[in-house]
Write a protein that binds this DNA or RNA. Sequence first.
DNA 1: CGATCGCTTGATTCCGATCAACAGGAGTGG
DNA 2: CCACTCCTGTTGATCGGAATCAAGCGATCG
Lengths: 234, 234
Amino acid sequence: MQALRQIEVSNAIRAARPDAVKAPAAANSGRSALADAVRLMGAAITYGRNEEVYGEDEPAEFVYMVTRGAIRTYKLLADGRRQIAAFRLSGDIFGLEVGDSHVFTAEAIADSEVIVAKRSAIMAIAARDGAVARDMWAATARDLVRAHDLMLLLGRKSAQERVATFLLEMADRVADGTMIDLPMSRHDIADYLGLTIETVSRTLSQMEHAATIALPTCRRIELRNRSVLSRLNS
Amino acid sequence: MQALRQIEVSNAIRAARPDAVKAPAAANSGRSALADAVRLMGAAITYGRNEEVYGEDEPAEFVYMVTRGAIRTYKLLADGRRQIAAFRLSGDIFGLEVGDSHVFTAEAIADSEVIVAKRSAIMAIAARDGAVARDMWAATARDLVRAHDLMLLLGRKSAQERVATFLLEMADRVADGTMIDLPMSRHDIADYLGLTIETVSRTLSQMEHAATIALPTCRRIELRNRSVLSRLNS
DNA sequence: CGATCGCTTGATTCCGATCAACAGGAGTGG
DNA sequence: CCACTCCTGTTGATCGGAATCAAGCGATCG
């Protein structure tokens, strides 16, 4: 039954993007019943840079888990202004919806691999397995906590504070010690922090001049004085 | 067993606030298994204007449902800057947490009545009843959708657009036709929209001069040209 | 009836946006 | 190899929208 479903999923995806289906990469170590269910029921798909995973208002047919690369989820206004709600990195689950359609667009920031599982299959498992149902709720609640933190940032923090918060967040999530390799462009950072690319760039330059950070390349940031950043993080 | 738990809850609350426990008000018609569970297990408590329901980082011992009045949930920065994440009106459930402590503060905006149920009791019901578990997830997901809309507003909308969005939202939630009776002050509106009270006040005045709205009193707003507001809402 | 609090309005300031120019790399093709 | 373009990021100059500072208004309540 589960094997059958998995084949169905693979076929559905293969029909749409026949070249992209591969064996899943080495399973990421996110230990949750939901992650296990997605891995069990899902197929790995790769997405190229800037490729759309799904669009806002599209039917929510699949659930996704990042295994490599990075995904941005965002909303647009009619005139193109964009607010990125989250960066999804390796291990993150996204696209879980209670309603039947997606509430934002998801795109690959860099070449990425994502495990895709049929939403109906995951929901069926959740109906039987309370641990999976709970994990679905927990994943949504975790997103909500992050959303609240971002709301506080967007509504009330200065440009410096926003960038400091972003750097500390990324250090937590992707840093190898104090060296951060950013998967995303200045444009993405700006649209996440509610700023412009110029302000992001200027603020990073200021921090470099103040020796708070170093910028070996524009995608590589070294934190040299974390306490300054923490103070700005409030 | 359920009756016993309800008595326990009532006692726990009565111990803390002996004067505030009353019989629940006429049950609000929110038809969900979760709302029913809260009503069944909960006791009604009244909170006065500006009274705290719970504080950020406090243990999440109870789950709440508004039956009268309005509650604000917010986060603070160290220096007092505030971002209101949501206004909770009659029928809304809040304080649901996956973790063991609250992630923001909740305060009564006006004199309010809230049904309070032990979180452990609700969680026990959810473990047995899939419909309740699903409603808990649905309630969290609904909050998340709202949070995303607010993030877009805070990150990318102008003051006019923010106020227009707010008015249309409140019209949906509390309007009697096109007349809105606001439970909250300009200060609350400003901290919800990421603006100052002056900017909120000015923007409302501009809209009044443009005949988009009327302001019979400062807590009472009549929408006179909804299409102008909708256009600003993007 | 005065005091207080919440709201409005005006004057000025300032932070970040916008407009503009340029620099550094990556990829391409001769 | 270089010349070229394209793309991303940086930096500078100026502008503008909302914040801040300040004053006055009006409703509510003791």
